[in-house]
């Protein structure tokens, strides 16, 4: 019972959504739109679980005084402060609360809301810096991982080097005296358009076939991992 009902629900909705794709009628399209809306609404509650899980992990760290537990306060406080500012003050458009603060304290919020100020001056800079940090590590990791031990490793390294060089002005400058066919930009274009695209297509087809097989397994109840353990 506890497993059969969910399996039946997955089967029914899976089959309905497959059939819906082949019916271009207005009602079918409207149904598809409502299903998308319904999935977004259910997704809200997924989010509640995700956030509560994060809070639980950090609360546990603080409770047990695990190493670095003080930083958990930073995460929890910043989460609450950002969420409160976003929910009460508005995400994209200022709410009455934001307008009240703007009026009474003569604030000037260029971005429109407090959340957007946090987004512009804290989240974006930190996100970009985190990812740019990888520029340093990716180079050292590549040096260690891709030491040209085999022909395939050489192929990978040479392609990466040629693509990088061909996409910067110095690449074009280096080969400007050669016949046009040997211009680095043209070589890179060719690599991306043919051998690279061939492998990408093969991988895409594999992904597609894998997705279809997994979806069918879910709908037919062969794949039940998503139901979790227990009865």
């Amino acid at each position: 019972m506890r497993r059969k009902i969910p399996l039946a629900i997955a089967f029914v909705f899976g089959i309905i959504m497959i059939i819906q794709f082949f019916i271009p009628h207005r009602i079918s399209v409207e149904f598809y739109r409502n299903m998308l809306n319904a999935l977004v609404i259910v997704g809200i509650f997924y989010y509640i679980l995700a956030v509560s899980s994060l809070i639980r992990v950090h609360r546990g760290k603080i409770k047990r005084k695990k190493p670095g537990w003080g930083y958990s306060y930073v995460t929890l406080i910043s989460l609450v402060v950002t969420a409160v500012i976003g929910v009460l003050g508005g995400a994209y458009q200022a709410t009455r609360i934001t307008s009240w603060f703007v009026q009474h304290f003569h604030w000037q919020i260029e971005q429109g809301t407090g959340l957007m100020v946090i987004y512009t001056y804290i989240q974006i800079p930190m996100g970009a810096t985190m990812f740019s940090l990888l520029a340093f590590f990716i180079a050292s990791a590549a040096f260690r991982a891709f030491k040209a031990r085999s022909l395939t490793a050489v192929l990978l390294l040479v392609t990466a080097f040629v693509v990088m060089l061909g996409r910067v002005p110095i690449g074009a400058l280096l080969t400007r005296r050669l016949p046009e066919i040997f211009h680095l930009t043209n070589i890179v274009e060719w690599i991306l358009k043919y051998p690279n695209m061939a492998a990408q297509r093969g991988i895409l087809m594999g992904i597609g076939l894998g997705m279809i097989a997994t979806s069918l397994k879910i709908i037919l109840g062969i794949e039940r991992g998503y139901l979790g353990g227990g009865d």
Binding site: N37, V40, I41, G43, I44, Y47, V51, L54, Y71, S72, V74, T75, L76, I77, S78, L79, V80, V81, T82, A83, I85, G86, V87, G90, A91, Y92, L115, I118, Y119, I122, Q123, M126, G127, M130
Partner: peptide
Amino acid sequence: FAEHLFVGVSVGYSVSVVWQNAFIRR
């Protein structure tokens, strides 16, 4: 400090976006 702040702010931001775009709007 920055790493933990980033996690907190990112989750807080997405809470606000989900609240506004999904809960309030839908």
